[in-house]
Structure formats: structure tokens, C-alpha cells
């Protein structure tokens, strides 16, 4: 079961059960809906901006432990970042969960390193990246729901 613990790390289980930054803010400058048709997960990402800097990032919706924890940890990571920085972090995160190595020892990923185990579970990569794809849609101010398909 050790490899399963690689996926379901304590931090992921914690954020999956007790997501941070959960619930819509009173006002959002950007928002987008994401949907993973494979498992029915749906979430909405909200951004409060000051210029191009993310002042607050929140989300709501329903999903599995991986997608919920990923959204929760993503919103924590994003606060204080610029939109351009957020995009760079997504690129590194995507590399991380698909088995790439560009993220190694990158301080920007901080807690997101706990998702490294996802790369051993290809069918769960979409769960881990749903929030990030939705974030990308929000930063691009696309109003359509994004899909991981």
C-alpha cells in the first residue's frame, strides 16, 4: 500500500476533507467553471485582483479528494502572485503530476510537491489539474466552462 500513500498523502487527505478558501467571495474579478466529465467533478474558481496581482483566490464545487485538495492548495499558493506567475506555476505543476522533473527543488511549488505521487496514477492526473485548468480559463477571462476532456 506504500504507493497508494504516495498518492493520498496526509496533506492531500487533510485538504480534501477540509478545503481552504472554499466558497464564493462577495465579489470576484474573474471566475470560471471547470468540469471533469469522466467523474462528474465540477468546480468554480474565483479570483479577486489588484491590477494583475491575485489578492484572493477561492473555489467551490464537488470533487474527489485529489481534485478538492488540488484546488485548495492551489488557492493558497496563488495569493499574492501575479497572473503571469500563476501561469508559470501551473506549467511546473503540470510537469510535476505528469512525471517531469523541471519542478525539482523549485521553491515556488512549496506544498504542491505532495502531488508528485499523482504521476504514478495516470487516470488521476485530470483530477489534480482540473482546478488549474479552470484557473487558466479564469485568467483568460473565458466565460465558458472548461472541460478536462
Amino acid at each position: 500500500m506504500s504507493d497508494l500513500r504516495e498518492l493520498y498523502q496526509e496533506l492531500i487527505l487533510d485538504h480534501g476533507k477540509h478545503p481552504r478558501n472554499f466558497g464564493a467571495p462577495e465579489h470576484a474579478d474573474r471566475e470560471a467553471k471547470g468540469h471533469n466529465p469522466l467523474c462528474g467533478d465540477r468546480l468554480t474558481v474565483y479570483l479577486v485582483l489588484d491590477g494583475d496581482r491575485i489578492v484572493d483566490a477561492r473555489f467551490d464545487g464537488a470533487g474527489c479528494a485529489i481534485s478538492t485538495a488540488s484546488a485548495s492548495l492551489m488557492t493558497e499558493t496563488l495569493k499574492g502572485r501575479t497572473l503571469a506567475e500563476a501561469e508559470q506555476i501551473f506549467a511546473k505543476f503540470h510537469d510535476l503530476v505528469t512525471g517531469g522533473r523541471s519542478h525539482l527543488d523549485d521553491p515556488e511549488l512549496e506544498k504542491l510537491e505532495v502531488f508528485a505521487g499523482v504521476s504514478e496514477f495516470p487516470v488521476r492526473v485530470k483530477c489534480a489539474t482540473l482546478a488549474w485548468h479552470t484557473l487558466k480559463a479564469a485568467t483568460e477571462a473565458s466565460s465558458d466552462a472548461v472541460s478536462t476532456e
Binding site: 500500500m1 504507493d3 497508494l4 498518492l7 493520498y8 476533507k17 466529465p37 469522466l38 467523474c39 462528474g40 467533478d41 470533487g63 474527489c64 479528494a65 485529489i66 478538492t68 496514477f121 488521476r124 483530477c127
Partner: peptide, 23 residues
């Protein structure tokens, strides 16, 4: 209660048990 079907499927798979999860 409290556990998403997708997570059930992944843990069961590691017990050798194949089920379907989803819609």
C-alpha cells in the same frame, strides 16, 4: 458518506478489486 467514488475506485484497485466509478 464523505468519500468520492473516484477515490473508492483507486483504493479498491490497489486491493486488486476492479469496479466502475463515474456517471
Amino acid at each position: 458518506d464523505g468519500i468520492h467514488p473516484h477515490d473508492i475506485g483507486t483504493v479498491l484497485d490497489h486491493e486488486g478489486i476492479a469496479i466502475r466509478t463515474g456517471h
